[in-house]
Design a protein around this nucleic acid. Structure first.
Length: 356
RNA sequence: UGGGGUGUAGCCAAGCGGUAAGGCACGGGACUUUGACUCCCGCAUUCGCAGGUUCGAACCCUGCCACCCCAG
């Protein structure tokens, strides 16, 4: 009897190819589609429906059975409620890193095990090795290890990433050659399972607006904001102020919850947009906690950023991360992911920026 | 109701008789499994209004209107 592998299928080309590759390798493959968000988008269409149809069609083409599971409650309780709480605190969360830890590699993994699977698989562009370490995907432009940094070795050892060694173009070419209908499907973006949204409008459905003043660093009032949670640090678009000051663009440099003021500064290179150090909480290590309390490694302060040289220091409070080069718009709630070369070590949620 | 000045897109602003620069904002797209950033494209048949001069005016002339400043 061949080993059973349950593949998390999104309806996209990556997971389609992942399932196909496993099937060709002789596994007993089962495709499972997750629906974790009930609401339809602002255009009134439910992309989950067409995605589910694509999953069914692809599974039929490949010749594997498929199921659909609904983790909407788990998603809301373990990911979305946290997401909203963070915004209420004026922070900018990354729900997808939690989604991977709590849903895809927990709820879904458990479900796969119940189906008798030896392992689960997804279409993520990441790789693992025998030791259960997380490695970057082979395609430097599509590496998604940033989103999986919160996983533990024990979770990764039960996961396969069939497309992690491939480049995106190869994946599409392969899908096309094999006749998978998803070969040309556009990559999905936006919050996982929720999708592309007009973000402000989306948040307004959950978080009440508390408008206030938009002020310059010197306190000069420049306009009004619709509610601090609708903006993030380093943001330019949506401020609606133009033609004042020296004529350059304005960027959010601070969210003053006390005064309910959005503080903005002019010029994309403004010093307040940059900092070298940050303190992280909720530190997670994929493997064992490092022996050294202080060491150099590289880090990404946001998805797709090229590796930054940093020095990290562990203390009782959390993790101190100091970059050798100034970092733009370090934002509380976002994740700092640590690497040793191609190996993802883990990371932390940025709690506060250390001003010089 | 004496004198002076200014009125160009939502904002700032070039233009000075030859057929409306640029920036910001805004809109669309690209990029992207968070939020952002970034990049590309678009954005005044029209220059406060009405006449006049001219082959031709936002630019010259006249009148009116609005705002600002200085005097009373």
């Amino acid at each position: 009897m061949n080993e059973r592998i349950v593949v998390g299928m999104s309806g996209g080309v990556d997971s389609s190819v992942a399932a196909l590759l496993l099937k060709e390798q002789g596994y007993d493959v089962v495709g499972v589609f997750m629906k974790n968000w009930e609401e339809q988008d602002e255009s009134g269409t439910c992309t989950a429906e067409s995605d589910w149809r694509d999953v069914q069609a692809v599974c039929d083409e490949i010749g594997i059975p498929y199921y659909s599971v609904n983790f909407a409650k788990e998603y809301y309780d373990r990911v979305f409620s946290y997401f909203l709480d963070e915004y209420k605190k004026g922070r900018t969360p990354n729900p997808d890193v939690l989604c991977n830890r709590e849903i895809k590699f927990k709820a879904f993994l458990d479900f796969a095990m119940k189906l008798g699977a030896a392992k689960m698989a997804t279409g993520h562009f990441v790789q693992t090795n025998e030791q259960g370490q997380l490695l970057k995907g082979a395609d430097p432009n599509k590496d998604q290890s940033y989103f999986l940094y919160m996983l533990k070795k024990q979770q990764l050892q039960k996961a396969l990433f069939p497309v992690g060694a491939m480049c995106k173009d190869e994946v599409r070419d392969y899908a096309k050659r094999k006749g998978l209908l998803t070969f040309a499907k556009k990559d999905s973006t936006g919050v996982c399972f929720i999708g592309e949204r007009h973000f402000k409008t989306f948040l307004q459905q959950f978080l009440p607006a508390t408008p206030g003043d938009m002020v310059a660093i010197d306190g000069q009032k420049l306009g009004r904001h619709d509610g601090l949670m609708y903006y993030t640090l380093g943001q330019r678009k949506g401020l609606g102020i133009g033609g004042c000051g020296d004529g350059r663009s304005w960027f959010v440099v601070e969210k003053d919850l006390e005064r309910n003021q959005l503080v903005v500064a002019q010029g994309e290179d403004h010093e307040l947009l940059y900092a070298n150090g940050a303190m992280g909480v909720d530190v997670t290590w994929i493997g064992d906690t490092p022996e050294e309390n202080t060491f150099d490694c590289s880090a990404k302060f946001r998805y797709r950023q090229k590796d930054q040289k940093v020095r990290v220091t562990l203390n009782g409070e959390g993790l101190l991360v100091n970059a050798y080069e100034p970092q733009r718009a370090l934002t509380p709630g976002q994740s700092i992911v640590l690497y040793d070369g191609d190996q993802c070590l883990g990371g932390t949620i940025l709690n506060n920026v250390l001003k010089k």
